[in-house]
């Protein structure tokens, strides 16, 4: 089976966010594989181990993403592709990323493409379905179970807490939700092997794309932090009095009840 995983390197949102010159500062920040993409990688490995085939993990980014690609290889992916847009793309949005990924994938005959359902930094959740649409294949988002039996595929989709049991077929794109699996940690032999696995680097040119073809259709004009919350009021006194005071504050001061 010809399997692809779409992966994004993200800022670890456990980090404190600092804004410098209108941008989220990356100085000294930790970067990770987007947690939802880790579920996608794990599922890809399980599917390959069961049905055979090869996994290519693909990212659009800059050379820093090599680290996360190596981690994906160490987990068990077979090949990695970095589409380096550092020199070509200044402003990008989900339209840009999806277009680049689809252009790369269009002649690769994928059977299965896996992605995270959302990236924890930008939080848009658009890229997976956009890529499927550009490739003309069906998609199922936020999946928690995947069963492939010949050409027939059974998927469980999380829909705001309820479950849809969906029948579909390959080729297919799915996006991973928490609960799909428990991503493995790279093993030491895995890390050693990963160093020798192929990591290909491409640029827009290699995909016959011009900068104009992928020009963003939206623009970020400002990034800001939430207003600092005044520290809250910790109530004092007898518990019963605290409760009375709280209800009264919610009613008269906060006016939410």
């Amino acid at each position: 089976m010809n399997i692809f995983v779409l992966m994004k390197r993200t800022f670890d949102t456990e980090e404190k966010i600092v804004i410098n010159n209108g941008q989220v500062s990356e100085d000294g920040a930790e970067f990770i594989i987007n947690p939802y993409d880790e579920y996608a990688i794990e599922e890809a490995i399980q599917v390959r181990d069961k049905h055979g085939g090869e996994i290519t993990v693909v990212t659009v980014g800059n050379e820093d993403a090599e680290k996360e690609l190596r981690t994906a290889l160490a987990m068990g992916c077979d090949k990695a592709v970095l589409i380096n847009v550092e020199d070509d793309v200044e402003e990008s949005d989900q339209y840009t990323t999806a277009k680049i990924l689809a252009e790369y994938l269009k002649d690769k005959n994928p059977d299965l493409i896996l992605a995270g359902n959302v990236a924890i930094d930008g939080g848009s959740g658009q890229v997976g379905p956009r890529v499927a649409e550009l490739l003309g294949i069906p998609y199922v988002t936020t999946i928690t179970k995947l069963d492939i039996d010949g050409g027939k595929v059974m998927v469980v989709r999380d829909v705001e807490g309820d479950e849809e049991i969906i029948e579909t077929s390959l080729p297919l794109l799915v996006t991973a939700q928490q609960g799909l699996n428990e991503p493995r940690y790279p093993s030491l032999p895995g890390i050693m092997k990963a160093k020798k696995k192929p990591l290909e680097e491409l640029e827009l040119d290699d995909l016959d794309l011009e900068e104009d073809d992928v020009e963003a259709k939206t623009k970020t004009i400002e990034i800001f932090l939430p207003p600092k919350k005044e520290s809250g009021k910790i109530l004092q006194g007898e518990l019963a009095d605290q409760v009375k005071e709280l209800v009264s504050l919610l009613h008269t001061e906060a006016k939410v009840i």
């Binding site: 966010i17 989220v24 924890i120 939080g123 020009e215 259709k217 939206t218 623009k219 970020t220 800001f224």
Partner: peptide, 21 residues
């Protein structure tokens, strides 16, 4: 029209505009 949306799991916000149609 300027649209505000949370990013970084609600730890920051961005303002966005549509630039193409």
């Amino acid at each position: 029209f300027v649209f505000t949306r949370p990013i970084y799991s609600g730890k920051a916000f961005e303002k966005k505009i549509a630039t193409d149609g």
